[in-house]
Design a protein around this nucleic acid. Structure first.
Length: 862
DNA sequence: GCAAGGTC
């Protein structure tokens, strides 16, 4: 029997599509990558009985990057990234092993049906999948078509079955347009980002951002925030005047009227009108207009609207909201949360979804009323062809969801109920008055039926006093007339909800990437989130955008994305050649880049005003090994050391504290060592500022401290402080922390494992001898006589921290020990690999012992 | 270390 291999874009869709196609009869199993499942069933395919095998990818299989050597920021001129630097496709998520997984499952299959999302990205993924599986398919049908594309516009029985009956083929041009987009974004984004970052970070010490990034989406996003900031700054408040009139009829009825001229910007003019009005003693009713008005029930909920409301009403940021929504989805409380669609599929069982909510005390009354009196037809929304709108899938309580989970679920559910409720109806009454020759109006609203506002109380019509019933020609007493001076107010900073709308309007990002872009400009310290989730640009953000405006406004205008997209659409439609479009657009940006580089002084002038030169930043900390003068420690992100005499900057590990390490020097370069320590885990190690950026030995990489240094004799090196193989990770070595007493500990030099031992010991040293059974270095411990926990009157003991029974109670291996081969029971890995440090030349499992120290040194120097 | 786009 032949096999048809089918692939969807994500696991959830593979499941729902195979369920529809097999009429619920498929069998499922998990794939070896742990993320995707395979659903199998048999059925008919082009007149034969076949086996169907459906699985999925997880979004893109591949991602684009420069080949390795072009990722060296120090050696590559960013201008080379426009054309010279070759790119390559890498697996998007190596952990998922997607290519191997697809090949394993597709091996020997006869036909392929591609069920990827029906947009350009989906079309591109089609070819990523084909690239992976073509070599393993059964190739015995040379003349037969074997690759098919299913085109569907919603995940409903009819649509999916129709798609299966009308299979087409994947669209190469659409896929190519995505390849072009990827290459443009990569080359342009990285070139500008690297140039800016290096230029400004080398010059200023207090930028407080580890990266000065640029991108076709994030930069316009920042632009919107700064545009509003500029409006606020340039706003000049203007005084204006209004006439307020208060009238009454009898004792109870007092009304405040609005002037039909609204306001005037000249006091004299206002005064003139006031004088006219003041000549009258009464206000005459000229007309009464009553209008029945409706407030429309909302459209079915899509992602962007959910993000807007979550930000403005729940105070939850987009990134966080998506995390919460994802959790609600995987736990089965809501439907798939990433969708553009605002229209329920035809066969969507609205009543069934509503019935699930009938017993929830928060809205049961409204739901029960709708179920007994009949639901309203939802408004016609937009069907983007991706996923149904976001709806609740089952009833939930606050206690099972947790605070934010519940708040989001509550909103989604109330919104859903609202979409099948009736519009809110109210009566609007406007009474027009004349006072002398001036006209005034009074408007009131009376609720007729609450409709959906019953479940969305924040939308309800405010209860205003109903207007009195009166007739045309009737006369009210004019109680008071005043000329009020007011001032125009500046706009406030952009709310996140407004920003999301602007991005959506200008096509910046997608429903899935909008939260990422907003998060980016926050993390890069371009904007901060203020109260009410308003986005206030920082000095850095403002200066950058003003600089772009000054040099080349197109770099920040939202139009740049759409202009590029226009070009890309030509590829998708087959009207333009992939290579030509790519070349053409890259060429434009290459010129923009060179112009930007040449004009950088314009941006620099603005930077100078807000930031201080690197030489004037920071406080003296450790001495430079070259000039022996103090280098300054710059704490602002990215923290680093700067020697103003040599004009060199040395990077440091981030996210931790840096202190001087006892004025000790690195034996290789004479730089004074510094001690890095992390706050939370309490791990610390010394490092040489020079070696950290310039690894001294062949087996070392950038970013290594003394705890990873293979110097054969230095007292701070791994060679002298390493104790044994890490109890958790594969390649780490547990290294003694000499600064940790009296709460002594050893910490893995690769992962976060920390093991406490020998608390309150007077002295702890690592011996040069090894354990007979596990090859770990022995540890020599001295205790004070009075406090010694050692047996007998012993104050000193030498032994293996893993094996020595005397040490057993003094080393907190506990849960970590369970994972260690020594304590797992059985043979484990013991036979193959000892615990010894390995790198230590004298170690039994490692190299043969060199004859003397000089030979050891020679063996390690490059 | 960089972009934006999928999704886990």
């Amino acid at each position: 029997m032949k096999t048809v291999f089918m692939v969807a874009e994500k696991p959830s869709l593979a499941q729902s599509i195979s369920k529809i196609l097999s009429r619920g009869s498929c069998t499922s199993r998990k794939g070896f990558n742990g993320a995707c499942s395979i659903h199998e069933y048999s059925g008919g395919f082009s007149g034969q009985n076949v086996r169907f095998k459906m699985t999925s990818v997880c979004g893109h299989v591949m991602t684009l990057d420069f080949i390795g050597k072009y990722n060296n920021w120090d050696k590559v001129d960013p201008a080379e990234l426009f054309s010279k630097a070759p790119t390559e496709k890498k697996e998007a998520n190596p952990k998922l092993n997607m290519v191997k997984f697809l090949q394993a499952e597709a091996r020997g299959c006869d036909y392929v049906v591609l069920w990827l999302d029906c947009d350009k990205e989906g079309e591109n993924i089609c070819f990523e999948v084909l690239e992976a599986i073509m070599p393993v398919l059964n190739k015995s049908y040379a003349n037969e078509k074997t690759i098919f594309r299913a085109k569907f516009s919603s995940i409903t029985d009819t649509d999916i079955c129709n798609a299966m009956n009308r299979l087409g083929e994947p669209n190469r041009n659409e896929a190519l347009s995505v390849d072009a987009r990827q290459e443009l974004d990569l080359r342009i984004g990285c070139a500008f980002t690297r140039f800016q970052t290096k230029y400004f970070q080398g010059k200023y010490g207090n930028l407080d951002s580890s990266l000065i990034s640029f991108g076709p989406c994030q930069t316009p996003t920042l632009g919107f925030c700064v545009e509003r900031h500029d409006k606020i700054q340039s706003f000049k408040p203007e005084p204006y005047w209004i006439i307020q009139a208060k009238v009454s009829k009898g004792k109870e009825l007092a009304l405040t009227l609005d002037w039909d001229r609204v306001r005037v910007f000249d006091r004299e003019v206002g005064q003139m009108f006031l004088n006219i009005v003041k000549t009258a003693r009464e206000a005459k009713v000229e007309s009464i207009i009553k209008k029945e008005k409706a407030k429309q029930r909302p459209l079915a909920l899509n992602t962007v609207e959910m993000l807007r409301v979550a930000s403005s009403a729940l105070g939850m940021g987009p990134q966080h909201t998506m995390q919460v929504a994802e959790r609600l989805y995987t736990q089965g409380y809501i439907s798939y949360p990433r969708t553009e669609t605002t229209h329920y599929p035809e066969n969507f069982d609205l009543k069934a979804a509503l019935r699930q909510q009938a017993n929830n005390p928060f809205w049961s009354e409204s739901v029960k009323a709708l179920l007994s009196e009949g639901i309203n037809r939802p408004r016609k929304g937009n069907d983007a062809g991706d996923h149904p709108p976001i709806t609740p899938m089952r009833s939930a309580t606050e206690s099972e969801l947790g605070s934010d989970g519940w708040r989001l679920y509550e909103y989604i559910t109330r919104h859903f109920i609202a979409t099948v409720s009736y519009d809110c109806k109210y009566l609007q009454t406007s009474i027009a008055f004349s006072i002398s020759s001036e006209n005034f109006t009074c408007t009131g609203k009376t609720l007729l039926s609450a409709g959906f506002t019953e479940v969305m109380p924040w939308q309800s019509i405010a209860k205003e006093e109903s207007l009195p019933s009166c007739e045309r020609g009737e006369v009210f007493v004019l109680d008071e007339v005043k000329l009020l001076e007011k001032q125009t107010n500046p706009p406030d900073y952009l709310t996140e909800a407004e920003l999301i709308s602007l991005m959506e309007k200008h096509g910046i990002g997608t429903d899935a990437s909008i939260p990422v872009h907003i998060n980016n400009i926050c993390q890069r310290n371009y904007v901060t989130v203020e109260s009410g989730r308003r986005l206030k640009p920082t000095n850095l953000g403002i200066v950058l955008v003003h600089g772009y405006y000054k040099i080349d406004a197109e770099l920040v205008l939202p139009t740049i994305r759409s202009a590029v997209e226009k070009q890309l659409n030509l590829i998708a439609q087959g009207k333009a050649n992939f290579k030509q479009v790519l070349q053409f657009t890259l060429d434009i940006f290459k010129r923009k880049f060179h112009y930007f580089v040449d004009s950088i002084a314009g941006l620099d002038e603005l930077m100078e005003v807000s930031f201080s030169p690197i030489a004037a930043t920071g406080k003296p900390l450790s001495r430079c090994g070259k000039c022996h003068r103090f280098m300054k420690y710059i704490q602002a992100k990215p923290s680093r050391l700067h020697c103003s005499h040599c004009d060199e900057t040395y990077s440091l590990p981030q996210n931790g504290a840096i202190k001087l390490y006892k004025e000790l020097r690195c034996p290789l370069d004479e730089f004074e060592l510094v001690l890095w320590s992390s706050g939370s885990r309490g791990k610390s190690y010394p490092l040489c500022p020079y070696c950290y950026s310039n690894p001294p030995f062949r087996d070392m990489k950038k970013g290594m401290g003394c705890n990873e240094c293979t110097h054969p004799t230095c007292q701070h090196s791994l060679n002298n402080l390493g104790i044994g193989q890490c109890v958790e990770c594969e390649h780490g070595v547990m290294t003694f922390d000499t600064t940790s007493g009296p709460k002594w500990k050893m910490a893995c030099n690769k992962c976060n494992v920390v093991v406490h031992f020998f608390e309150n010991a007077h002295k702890v040293r690592v011996s040069s001898d090894c354990c007979e059974s596990c090859e770990a270095s022995l540890v020599i411990v001295d205790f004070n006589k009075a406090k010694s926990p050692l047996p007998g009157d012993e104050t000193q003991h030498t032994g293996c921290v893993f094996c020595d029974p005397v040490f057993q109670d003094l080393v907190e291996l506990k849960h970590a020990a369970m994972k260690h081969p020594m304590h797992r029971g059985g043979q484990g890995r013991r036979q193959g690999r000892g615990r010894g440090r390995g790198r230590r030349p004298g170690g039994r499992g490692g190299l043969k012992k060199p004859k003397d120290k000089m030979a050891a040194l020679a063996a390690y120097f490059v």
